[in-house]
Design a binder for these strands. Structure first.
Length: 847
RNA sequence: GCCCGCGUGGUGGAAUGGUAGACACAGGGGACUUAAAAUCCCUAGGCAGGAAUGCCGUGCCGGUUCGAAUCCGGCCGCGGGUACCA
């Protein structure tokens, strides 16, 4: 008998599929289509276990759906723009494009070895001018439809490297390379008007029945629709033009608990006051040293500066409140000014305690007295509370009722207006970097900002750039900026900002439907292939990537690039868990962290130098932390089928998995065993016993494995296949039955271990490729059990069991249960308090 | 900080209101073998016990229910996101 040799059989079947064009997607109007897509990878150069897991899952779905008679589209491409290529350019003196395309080539060969059912004829990289040219064309369409605009926004500025930093490049408020304290700098930037779609993006979530609830919830919270009151405090002796301060609050019912007004350091009033107040100016400067990330802002110690100015409370002109400039108030949200109610907001509470401001409860628990608070009292808005400083509505009411009553009161008394606001901000897409899609606009002294002519697209990146100093090479390129104004023909300058890489990944799924098309999409192809029936990717993309893609689908539809049905481009979403791994870290001479690949570490020490590494517990595998594992070695040792089987077994797909080398061996052993059993069966002859049992096991396996795949429970499908393999191996059934059972096993395994399955299929005389064979169907009649074992509980604890015919009437089951030895003993002659019989499941005797 | 998840034997996990630990890994014992590898068989949550069996047990505390890993409330720990990592 031949050995199980993945190295021989895997390339053989990969060639067979390629020659037959098995995975080339064909638009066939006679067949139902199925578009399965995994989030495309960043071409780091190395496939890691997260990729293997992600793409194997998609492959299982793609192969399964093909065998169910669908015309399957399963494409692959590269999310190829981004920071790492520029970092490589600086570190290794290699052009970002060369680095990226080299990585694509090497990753593609690693992909090939996995035997994925991908249609490579549709491959593209987002850094291909053919792709980003179409993106530029759409940007111009978006401009025409008013979906793009410019405004000022702050960035992290490294004053030493003279460059803009990503949030990731800021460590402890310092630039990662220069170590210089980062400053906030305001630049004119490009924005997409995603906020025009806030309401729609929110409401449409309700229709996404096949998205995980957690993702929809995260998006809902991110969009952050709130109803509140906008009103103005009148100021006392404020500089000219600041007679009033507009504030927005979601808790107008707590107005009588107000003890201060807070404004952002970027608020116009703060800017006006700091001119004549050096101390305030110093405070604002301090605030502006903070990075731009929300996380950093919120985690920082809450600080304020008393401007000395006062406002009058809208209900009582004698009641004055101080105005503080506070570091935790965002200019981007609401009006950049708030009133603080320390009794019912923990952040305000801490602020008031620190600056010795009054803390007056507006409401208490319904049965509590109005006593001093040790912390803010923040009940759910749906909970009824007793108002002790209320001004509208009942004394006892819920927060929701009180807010509505407060808004009504303020509106009818001319104090303010009820307004709806969204937390979602417009999408800033400008990046001051080289390796991205150039924004196709031109700055003309006479005509202003003008879109490039479409016939001049793509606006290609220049190749002759260098990275010997930080900053944007496009900015300092000697000639690239020079061009003619598309409107008046005079000399003008190109925009040097490039686009956020999220733009690239917001429409690639649409491009896959017609990747060579001279327009962004082809209407016929998009109509046939859209939407993505199953999208699979990491939960880390739950908000930004998916929200941006939903926006893009709408914008593309407005511009005629997608059919109306594609406004929600992903019918079903599955978020796989991450593959995690320990991080190995040392420190450089400046005490900054240096990360090391697992392959460079042995027994907690660097192989090269013996230096001890600090081990940081499991975290998401990331290129920057270098805690990645190379699956190529597993594939070359055990074969792709083993790697695929391994990543599908054990861990539920949605859960994180810690990568471990143990288990690959076990997967290999199992596949070898299946191979051996198949070979035994291939040469077996004659009759046997227990054919019916084996057939029942077969139909059960068909049913269970199919259910597992349908419900994304691949690990349970694998477990059922282990059980079925055990049953088949032990079976004494006749040769014909065993052959049939083994061929079904090969089919059930084929989405997971396609090479081995083809080999067994061919060995046992299967017709054609197993990849083209129709999925087996379970015979329902073979799934029914005649008798069932019912556990008997006494007071909810299992004490006994009884075997009964499946359809025994409830009364007889009750009789049998009461006659059970354990029950008789426990009852001790008495009668049960209650007797619960759940047919087919359980009997519970309550004593 | 805020939003969203997750937590079950030595390990990965199964069970999503009904027999907790399926299926595997590592472990222990045995068969085959001159021996080893490979393979096959048995065993296996913890504690007590010779066994029958009993008690405990799904991060912690409390609640709902005839019955809770599962539902609810409060904590603890870990992870993801936090708008320029992708």
């Amino acid at each position: 008998m031949s050995r199980f040799e993945p190295r021989e059989i895997e390339p053989k079947w990969q060639s067979a599929w390629e020659e037959a064009g098995t995975f080339t997607a064909v638009r066939d109007e006679a067949k139902p289509k199925y578009y399965v897509l995994e989030m495309f990878p960043y071409p780091s150069g190395n496939l890691h276990m997260g990729h293997v897991r992600n793409y194997t899952m998609g492959d299982v779905v793609a192969r399964y759906k093909a065998s169910k008679g669908f015309s399957v589209l399963h494409p692959m491409g590269w999310d190829a723009f981004g920071l790492p290529a520029e970092n490589a350019a600086m570190d290794k003196n290699i052009h970002p494009g060369a680095w990226t395309y080299q990585n694509i080539e090497s990753m593609k060969s690693q992909f090939a070895a996995l035997g994925l059912s991908l249609d490579w004829s549709r491959e593209f990289a987002t850094c291909d001018p053919e792709y980003y040219g179409q993106q530029q064309s759409m940007f111009i369409d978006f401009m025409e439809k008013g979906l793009v605009y410019r405004k000022n926004a702050v960035v992290n500025w490294d004053p030493v490297d003279m460059t803009v930093l990503a949030n990731e490049q800021v460590e402890d408020g310092k630039g990662w390379r220069s170590g210089a304290p980062v400053e906030r700098r305001e630049l004119t930037q490009w924005f997409f008007k995603i906020s025009d779609f806030s309401e729609e993006l929110l409401e449409a979530l309700d229709g996404l029945d096949n998205w995980p609830d957690k993702v929809k919830l995260m998006q809902r919270n991110w969009i952050g629709k709130s109803r509140g009151l906008q009103f103005a405090f009148s100021t006392i002796d404020a500089p000219e033009g600041f007679d009033r301060i507009e504030v927005y609050t979601t808790r107008p019912d707590t107005l009588n608990g107000a003890s201060f007004v807070g404004i952002s350091p970027d608020h116009p009033l703060a800017k006006a006051l700091e001119k004549d107040n050096p101390e305030l100016a110093a405070f604002c400067a301090e605030c502006r040293k903070m990075g731009t990330s929300e996380e950093e802002m919120e985690k920082a110690e809450k600080k304020g500066f008393d401007t000395g100015l006062r406002v009058r409370h809208p209900f009582d002109t004698a009641w004055e409140l101080p105005i503080y400039v506070a570091n935790f108030i965002l200019m981007d949200y609401g009006t950049g000014a708030i009133f603080g109610c320390p009794a019912h907001d923990q952040r305000d509470f801490e602020f008031a305690t620190k600056y010795d401001l009054p803390i007056n409860a507006v409401f208490t628990e319904t049965d509590a007295e109005d006593a001093p608070l040790a912390e803010a009292f923040v009940p759910a808005k749906t909970e009824a509370v007793k108002f002790v400083r209320g001004f509208a509505g009942e004394d006892v009411q819920t927060g929701e009722q009180a807010i509505d009553a407060a808004v009504d009161f303020c509106e009818s008394n001319g104090i303010g207006q009820g307004v709806t606001k969204f937390r979602l901000r417009d999408w800033g897409l400008s990046r001051q970097r080289y390796w991205g899609c150039p924004i196709p606009v031109i700055h003309c002294d006479d005509c202003g900002v003008v879109a490039e002519k479409k016939e001049n697209l793509p606006v290609k990146l220049p190749d002759d750039v260098n990275f010997d100093k930080p900053g944007n090479p496009l900015d300092r390129h000697p000639t690239w900026r020079n061009c003619e104004c598309p409107k008046c023909g005079k000399p003008a300058l190109r925009e040097t900002d490039t686009m956020d890489t999220f733009v690239d990944s917001s429409w690639y799924f649409a491009r896959f439907t017609s990747p060579g098309c001279a327009t962004p999409t082809d209407a016929t192809e998009a109509e046939y292939w859209m939407n993505v029936d199953q999208y699979i990717g990491g939960v880390e993309h739950a908000i930004l990537h998916l929200l941006y893609s939903r926006f893009f689908a709408r914008a593309m539809q407005i511009c005629g690039h997608l059919p109306p049905k594609a406004v929600e481009p992903f019918d079903a979403l599955f978020t796989q868990g991450m593959v995690t791994h320990e991080i190995y870290q040392t420190r450089d001479e400046n005490n900054r962290p240096v990360y090391h690949l697992p392959t460079d570490v042995e027994d907690g020490k660097l192989k090269a130098t013996g230096e001890a590494v600090e081990i940081i517990p499991s975290a998401k595998m990331s290129k920057s932390k270098k805690n990645v594992v190379d699956p190529v070695s597993i594939v070359s040792t055990y074969g792709a089928d083993t790697a695929r089987w391994f990543v599908l077994s054990d861990s539920p797909p949605e859960r994180d998995v810690e990568w471990t080398a143990a288990g690959a061996e076990a997967s290999y052993k199992h596949l070898s065993r299946v191979w051996r059993v198949a070979n035994d069966i291939a040469t077996a002859e004659g009759e046997g016993t227990g054919d019916d049992d084996l057939l029942r096991a077969m139909h059960k396996a068909i049913h269970d494995v199919t259910m597992g795949i349908e419900s994304f429970g691949f690990n349970t499908s694998v477990a059922k296949l282990y059980g079925y393999a055990n049953a088949l191996q032990k079976s004494k059934a006749g040769a014909a039955t065993k052959r049939q059972a083994m061929m079904v096993m090969a089919q059930l395994m084929s989405p997971m271990t396609p090479h081995l399955s083809e080999e067994i299929w061919a060995l046992l005389g299967g017709e054609g490729l197993i990849a083209n064979a129709p999925w087996p169907i379970a015979d329902e009649a073979m799934l029914v059990e005649d008798t069932v074992t019912m556990p008997i509980q006494i007071n909810g604890k299992r004490k006994s069991e009884v075997s009964i015919p499946k359809d025994m009437p409830k009364e007889e089951v009750e009789k049998l249960a009461l006659a059970d030895d354990a029950v008789v003993k426990a009852l001790n002659g008495g009668a049960p308090k209650k007797l619960i019989v759940v047919p087919g499941r359980i009997i519970n005797v309550v004593i």
